[in-house]
Write a protein that binds this DNA or RNA. Structure first.
Lengths: 356, 356
DNA sequence: CATAGTATCGTAAACGTTTACGGAGCGCAT
DNA sequence: ATGCGCTCCGTAAACGTTTACGATACTATG
């Protein structure tokens, strides 16, 4: 009957074993680098697997050892995110993968549908046990997901800090440092009336940004004026709207800090419609840099960082909390505030001479 | 020993069955909506599952029925993509999910690492059988992935047309229609010397775009000049570079068609550095719209479409090629050229009077 | 020569589902 | 009373792995 193993479609490890005339257990051990297998046979097995294109069925493996070798990155892609996130996630993903791939871990992105509650979505994903560990992003000020993941005992890390005091690992951009640096610089140039744009305070970014803003002003003895905090979307449209509101103010600010570089496009447009020249009549500083900042006119002063490296850090922090990998990364601190550096442009270059 | 089922962590369907004093088979049938189960017991099972938070283990299910209920969207996130893809994928993803969710299918994104060959990556993913079907993006002019997927007999669709004549399903933007419309419009305004930017011809977009450009010029009796085809990245940097090359030409073109709206930022910057005003001294038309087009100054003339709806179309086309779902979508044609509509701006509004 | 130790391999059980199959109970017509 | 059809449910096999355990052959040691 069995008269020679033509390279058939390859159904599983069993066929591979038959083809080699070896027991299925040995084949498995050979493929997985277990010690108790002759190097000679291991070579044969690996060669045959390569030739026949055998790759272990993930479901079978997962079922047996309760592990999937997949890490999930949950992203919300809320309307707001779609508008502004740019390639934030894809860039961070690159950093994550450069670490994970060393451990034969695959990264998949789990985009929560618009019409589904992120918490419910996450619950589903956790229950399905499709991933070994999770990275969640766009953390909220109060985020039930932390409890969910802790209770499910699934390793996770967050892209975005936690304000609820829990001790899970996270990495986040240094909003506080950025806002301090920006305000120091503007004050040094003579500005006293500085507006700021921020998203809703429910989002960590919005909350921390405005808090840092308040403290920085206080440090310089400048009174905090709520009217100068403008909640807007982090898009061109949002920037346009920020400018619109600023122009309506009686005591118009001389400087504005934007939460995102894209907003500058809309803001430039709006103020120029009123004959106001950015970089001459109003100083503009933006938080996160994207490649287009330097092509704006005037070039935007903003803060830069390597999102790729941030991804690396995030990956290492996650692995350090996974028992199977922690021995390699245990030295890592578990919560990182990621620094950014100032890229001076021309949008805030002028020095204010008139004192108010 | 077993003295009452306290809501324990819930290990599997077996515990659920014990807790209900029903056989495990019946529980499974009840949960999966099989007909031969009493409606009364079905209710009990569903209630208990809900209360105990039971969700079927995906690995077990997949192993048994050879299906995962997961659709994968492979994205390259090559350097070039990271620069320009923006939220293209996230928006399309929204459309895909709105269809998939109706069938309890989950979408995951599979980002191919930078340092891995997309073909090898796809091979791995296919072999692992982690998804039931695949959507691949950024198709090349010759793309081995089509053969791979066809040979593996895994249903798939492409975001990006095929030029190799294979009959697999795809959806792609209507490059040809766009280029025709743009050139008709420019010619009607008196332009005869029209430059165009495009990515490498290896990529379908680059190839089709330039081909359409040639044919459109021919239709108007305008000579095709290879010097006016400028290969550049689809980023601000690329736009800057396009302008740079245009300015160096002896017989400078009066109009330019950009492949991507972001490029306009760099192009504006560069030509204005030479005292040339876009929309007055040079006409600019861009291919795909993004929300910032209208905030540029002058507002960019470009083409718009709903990427969300494109995602819907793509999802339906894919499902129509999957036996389990095709009965609901079988009427769909399998290859769709997705239309875009012109959004007039001011960047090409002027009428050329001087004849050359 | 007997024994212990080592290297290598085969056997079979488990992982959590789904599902084909058959059996029990019941009502109804013959 | 018998047979038939129906509804509902339990049993057990199967999916493709990994791995604990034991078996074998060989080597080294006494």
């Amino acid at each position: 009957m069995v008269q020679g193993g033509k390279p058939r479609p390859m159904k599983g490890i069993r066929q591979l074993a038959e083809h080699l005339d070896i027991s299925i257990g040995t084949v498995s051990r050979a493929l997985n680098g277990k010690p108790d297998v002759n190097e000679e046979t291991r070579k044969r097995v690996l060669a045959a697997a390569e030739q026949l294109g055998y790759v272990a069925n993930q479901s079978g493996r997962s079922l047996r050892q309760g592990t999937t070798n997949v890490i999930g990155l949950m992203i919300q892609s809320s309307r707001e995110t779609v508008e502004n996130s740019d390639n934030f996630f894809l860039t961070v993903t690159g950093g994550l993968q450069s670490v994970f791939s060393r451990h034969k871990l695959d990264l998949i992105m789990l985009p929560c549908p618009h019409d589904e509650d992120p918490y419910e979505y996450l619950k589903r994903m956790v229950a399905r046990r499709i991933v070994d560990a999770l990275i969640i992003s766009e953390t909220q000020r109060v985020d039930k997901r932390f409890d969910l993941l802790a209770k499910a005992k699934i390793p996770f890390a967050a892209l975005g800090r936690s304000l609820s005091g829990t001790q899970h690992p996270w990495v986040d951009l240094d909003f506080g440092g950025v806002i301090n640096c920006a305000i120091d610089r503007l004050v040094a140039h003579g500005h006293r009336r500085i507006a700021i744009s921020a998203p809703s305070s429910d989002i960590n970014l919005g909350f921390v940004f405005v808090e840092g803003y308040r403290r920085a002003l206080e440090r310089h003895g400048i009174l905090y004026d709520p009217a100068l905090v403008i909640r807007a979307k982090s898009s061109e449209q949002g920037g346009y709207q920020v400018a619109d509101e600023l122009l309506r103010l009686e005591d118009r600010p001389t400087a504005v800090i934007l939460i995102y570089e894209l907003m500058a496009i809309g803001l430039y447009r709006r103020v120029m419609e009123s004959g106001i020249i950015p970089g001459r009549d109003i100083a503009v500083v933006s938080f996160r840099e994207a490649p287009r900042a330097k092509f704006l006119q005037p070039a935007l002063t903003c803060f830069r960082t390597s999102l790729h490296d941030l991804g690396v850090e995030l990956a290492e922090i996650l692995l350090s909390s996974m028992p199977a990998y922690s021995h390699e990364y245990s030295r890592k601190s578990r919560q990182t505030v990621w620094p950014l550096e100032l890229i001076p442009g021309e949008s805030d270059a002028f020095r204010l001479t008139t004192t108010k």
